[in-house]
Amino acid sequence: MSDDKSPEKRAPEQSPENVPAPTGQVGQVGVRTGMFGVSGTGDTSGYGGLVSAVTFPAPVQRPYGGWFDEVADALEAGTRAAGVEHALGDVVVHRGEITFHVRREDLVAVVKVLRDDPALRFEFCAGVSGVHYPEDTGREFHVVYHLGSMTWNRRIRLEVTAPDSDPHVPSVTGVYPAADWHERETWDMYGVVFDGHTALTRILMPDDWPGHPQRKDYPLGGIPVEYKGGSVPPPDQRRSYN
């Protein structure tokens, strides 16, 4: 979204192959094994038990480029004034989009600054989406907020994580009333509890539905598909290239 293309230019350095070791927490979130599709090793025979790490774009250091720095400066100053020190964790700039990782206990204070600070004015919360990284130990659930500023015509992304053992994230409905249904959907699909939400009930699945369907460990194939004695395994147990 940025006119300045400088974040784009840094993309090659951030691509997983070129990062020697993840500097921050955004590191390895899984392992890919299989016959094909494992790059970075000399073995092309396909029989070597190929294993490669799944890494997401690594955090970057300042300058972030373009207006990203202005937003980061204003956010840091604003949160400090609001009494939150070190609210910002890792900052990821990838493909011209910026993601701020926020500690979950600071989330409400941070979004309040983002909405109210005249230099930020992210008055538009486009939505909330959950992502489940089962192998990102201790931070299995990521809750992603897409914020927009109509005043400045900017977009940013906030990311908050919660462990599987304690899937709680504070609700932002006090700041963005429109996050109401989005948080209900994330609860419904992932089982993330949004503390402070006034009516956190299921929204898409039936009220008495067991489990949270979009979690990666949710069992598939509840209804066996049979054809002439053979049965079709659920999609996550079929042979795949991934």
């Binding site: 799944v54 486009a126 989406s129 897409h146 991934n242």
Partner: peptide, 18 residues
């Protein structure tokens, strides 16, 4: 909007539609 997440594979890791 579509929040598209990839883990580097041949299939979407997560797609959420706003």
């Amino acid at each position: 909007g579509a929040h598209v997440v990839s883990d580097g594979g041949t299939r979407p890791f997560r797609v959420h539609f706003r």
